[in-house]
């Protein structure tokens, strides 16, 4: 949008929404919406506390472990599916099913099998993230120009060489897109896991704040989460755009 001929970046409209929030909060229309400024003050107050930092570390650990597992398993599976039609036909129905299945229903199963701890949360994260990573890696490999595959074959690349030197790189734009979407889903998974387990990490804080009606604390916590999720998604989006020339060259 332009004001007086100066182009204003789109994200600047968030400032407008923050101001609107402040006004609504000051009017005390709803106990649900404390003024924006109060939330920021509370945020500065609680973030350095040990309880918050501990919860944050637990969440970060679960997230990183989950996404690491999802990527190390997901990309090879996706590449294999893209290269082998038999494997593809055997696995694709399952991948598609889990992509649209209500994964929250599986969390109780994980809880009965793995207890109310980090293991369950990590597995929930993996379960949320992995399917899109597999699917995008598969799509990437399927989109490789056939002549590039023939090139690898004609220079007698071994299967391992072809895999590590050609397929993964040629499919990079899609793999990166899958990793970005996987990370966004992993953030949702790690939070849903903690909400349901509710005795570790932010799950415990949610429980504590909501049972004591601490709205400002609650929002401060949500802001921190939203902020990190946004930075993560945008950062990975930036990385993805760096490799866009790849895809452009292919078409």
């Amino acid at each position: 949008m332009k004001i007086f001929g100066i182009k204003i970046p789109m994200m600047a409209s968030l400032i407008f929404w923050a101001i609107l929030w402040e006004i609504v909060g000051q009017l005390e229309l709803s106990i649900l919406l404390p003024p924006f400024s109060h939330i920021i003050i509370r945020l500065v107050e609680i973030v350095p506390t040990k309880m918050f930092m501990d919860a944050f570390l637990v969440t970060a650990q679960c997230f990183l472990a989950g996404i690491a597992i999802a990527i190390t398993l997901g990309i090879p599976i996706g590449v294999l599916m893209g290269r082998s039609i038999v494997i593809d036909r055997m696995l694709l129905p399952w991948v598609n099913m889990f992509l649209s299945a209500p994964l929250t229903a599986l969390v109780p199963v994980l809880m009965t099998l793995f207890g109310f701890g980090m293991k369950t949360i990590i597995l929930t994260t993996v379960l949320f993230a992995i399917w899109i990573i597999v699917l995008d890696a598969r799509a990437g490999v399927k989109n490789i120009t056939p002549s590039l595959i023939d090139m690898a074959k004609s220079f007698q690349a071994s299967y391992w060489q072809a895999f590590t030197k050609v397929y993964v790189w040629a499919a990079l734009p899609e793999i990166l897109a899958g990793m970005r979407l996987g990370c966004i889903r992993a953030v949702k998974g790690v939070i849903i896991g903690q909400l349901l387990v509710s005795v570790v990490g932010f799950g415990r804080l949610f429980e504590l704040y909501s049972s004591n009606f601490l709205m400002e604390h609650m929002w401060a916590l949500l802001f921190v989460l939203f902020f990190f999720a946004f930075i993560l998604a945008e950062g990975l989006g930036l990385l993805e755009r760096k490799f866009e020339y790849y895809a452009a060259e292919r078409h």
């Binding site: 204003i8 409209s13 968030l14 407008f16 949702k188 939070i191 009606f213």
Partner: peptide, 26 residues
């Protein structure tokens, strides 16, 4: 677009499940 898109871009990447305790409260 200028007013709305950024809000939804933030909301899409955000773990909105975390709002459930607030909704229950309200």
């Amino acid at each position: 677009e200028w007013f709305g898109a950024p809000v939804f871009i933030v909301l899409q990447s955000a773990p909105l499940a975390a709002l459930i305790p607030l909704l229950t409260f309200a």
